[in-house]
Computed example of a mutant assay.
Amino acid sequence: MLSLLRPLLAACSCLLLPGGQAWIPGYNNGFHYQDISNGNGNGEIYFNGVRLLVESPELSVSATRGSSVTLPCHFHYEPEQTTPRRTRVKWSWLPANTISAPVSPEALTREIEVMVAMGSRHRSYGSFRGRVRLRRSAPGDMSLVISELQLNDTGRYRCEVIDGLEDESVTVDLEMRGVVFPYYSQKGRYHFNFFGAQQACKDQEATLATFEQLFAAWEEGLDWCNAGWLADGTVQYPIKAPRAGCGGVDLAPGLRSYGQRHRLLYRYDAFCFSATIRGTVYFLKNQTKFNFTEAVQACVSDGSHIAKVGQMYAAWRLMGLDRCDAGWLADGSVRYPITKARANCGPPEPGVRHFGFPPLYLEFGVYCYR
């Protein structure tokens, strides 16, 4: 250990204490050194560290859109310190669509700064500006509070505490409670490249689903035999009942994966994810039915807007919307939501029934969003 200190001793004006211990004026890296004599006159320097620990009791947190959520992060020292130490905390974020498992070192360079704080000073960045703060409910509490949660806030958050040369961190995954639904173009199946799929989901008040979200939907019963883009650029589809044309009858149930595909050249459908909506989706009661143009105007006249597909799925899955009446939606499709399956309302399981994209002059009811 002393040999490691010699270059430093030679480079600065230092005082060599008895036993070979060096005192370096004004130097403090968060550790302390202690002279231990072994009784034979040969002094040795032992590294007696003050260890910085950064921990989280929850490595995964789920929340609903529009709500507030707390990502827990706490730090402490071993041994405990009797006087406060000057620390800096940095929260950063790896968006869900950039996460691969395991996370590569290169992925860490894609982390986006969320907030930095030292003492009473803090600063937030980008879309998090004004929406984040530190909880500070107790000494060492650096938990991040995010308000007004947005669909694209999901991902992996890193809490990094820096004390001098010490730097420790912990990650917390943020998931959104919601629903995954398959989506395809008005032109038919397999018309979206990756960026088109992203935009299609966004147009329907949703985002491209992550692998974890699609896997959870599969566990809950989603079975769909058409491949779709996911947020990480892979193409997959969920199968509960193996069958010919869907990977074959000999494959076990699960997610069928085509792996990564060229995001511009290849075309598939999309798996979208929608979370809780703030408003209400409702079927507009009217004595007459509408063509698409009339349906759009009817919702406006009722003080609302024609509902989007993501809004209907969220209202069906998270709010129990149940209506056995086909109605126009904003993308020109006709659908209706069934929570309690019954005769004359489609298949014998809950779901959003889909009539496709009929000619816009045909007449149906309409679902509005307020």
Rank of each mutant, 00 (worst) to 15 (best):
R156A: 06
R131M: 10
P84A: 12
C159Q: 05
L108N: 12
T82S: 14
E113K: 09
F181W: 07
E78L: 15
Y183C: 00
R85C: 01
M142T: 13
P95Y: 05
R123D: 08
Q186S: 15
H122W: 07
P79Y: 10
F128C: 10
D141P: 10
L108T: 11
V116H: 03
E78V: 15
E111R: 15
V103C: 00
F75A: 06
H76C: 08
F181H: 11
Q186W: 05
L174D: 07
S143C: 09
E111H: 07
S147P: 05
S104Y: 00
G164H: 13
M176V: 07
S120R: 02
T87I: 14
S104W: 01
E160L: 12
T154E: 13
I146H: 08
T171I: 01
R131S: 13
G119I: 06
S185E: 02
Y125E: 07
R135W: 02
R136K: 15
F75M: 04
M176D: 02
E160M: 07
L94W: 00
A138Y: 08
C159N: 01
S92R: 04
I112W: 05
G130P: 02
L144H: 10
R86V: 12
W91K: 03
Y183F: 13
K90M: 13
W91N: 05
S104E: 10
A138N: 08
Y183A: 02
L94H: 03
R129P: 00
V172E: 06
T98D: 05
P72W: 01
Y125A: 11
T98R: 14
V179Q: 11
T98M: 13
S124P: 04
S143L: 04
R85M: 10
G164Y: 13
F75D: 05
V116C: 02
R136D: 15
N97F: 07
I99W: 03
P139E: 11
R110T: 13
Y125L: 08
L174W: 06
